[in-house]
Amino acid sequence: MLEVRDLHAFYGKSHILQGVDFRVGKGEIVSLLGRNGVGRSTTIKAIMGDVERRGSIQFKGREIGGLKPHQVAHCGLGYVPENRDIFPGLTVRENLILGMKSNQPGGRWSMEDMFTLFPRLRERADTAGGVLSGGEQQMLTICRTLMGDPDLVMIDEPTEGLAPKIVELVAGLFKEIRNRGVSILLVEQKLAIALDISERLYVMGHGRIVFEGAPRDVRENAAMRKEWLEV
């Protein structure tokens, strides 16, 4: 579904990604792991067209490496940024409306689905996003992207700084997303969650993919974990 080959990305003069290769299949959950600063967020941003990039990015058989972010989104790629970047001055409902690509409802998700999955969002539907708790903001950020009905959603560090109970909720949402036939590319710090829900995992180091395997391969390879993941 998503096939990235020899992806390079740049912030001005600094050359951050130096040839990244990976793929995500239809209906798959794939995790992108690595220590802070190795370029996981940059990889996602490069796919969205939010940073300067070179290389091949194929999505549903179409080359999207030259498209602008809004065009990439219209191809069916969803992006959930890190830091829970909701629109703080707009209400929860307005945030969700902005996730939709057109006025017409349709697609896999409705606002009602979101409110059923997270009753807390329904209670706060007319509250400004900026006053929600961290966990609520994280739900809202993911739901906002889902309202655009992506076929593959890239989620950047969704559980960072969340209480264990909320982390469980988020993990539950990932399963719901997969059940509706949406693929997930997940950037996740918490190894336990990534191993639990992913079909395959990639590990990044210094702007490249340094390991690829199933959850079992990661569990069994202590040397790799020590070199590339543990702090």
Partner: peptide, 24 residues
């Protein structure tokens, strides 16, 4: 209106509005 919401959000968070599929 929807357009108004897009404008409001784009003033403060243009990049995110773009990745949601709006032509900023």
């Amino acid at each position: 209106t929807r357009v108004g919401l897009i404008i409001q959000a784009a003033l403060t968070h243009p990049n995110i509005v773009g990745t949601l599929g709006h032509n900023v």
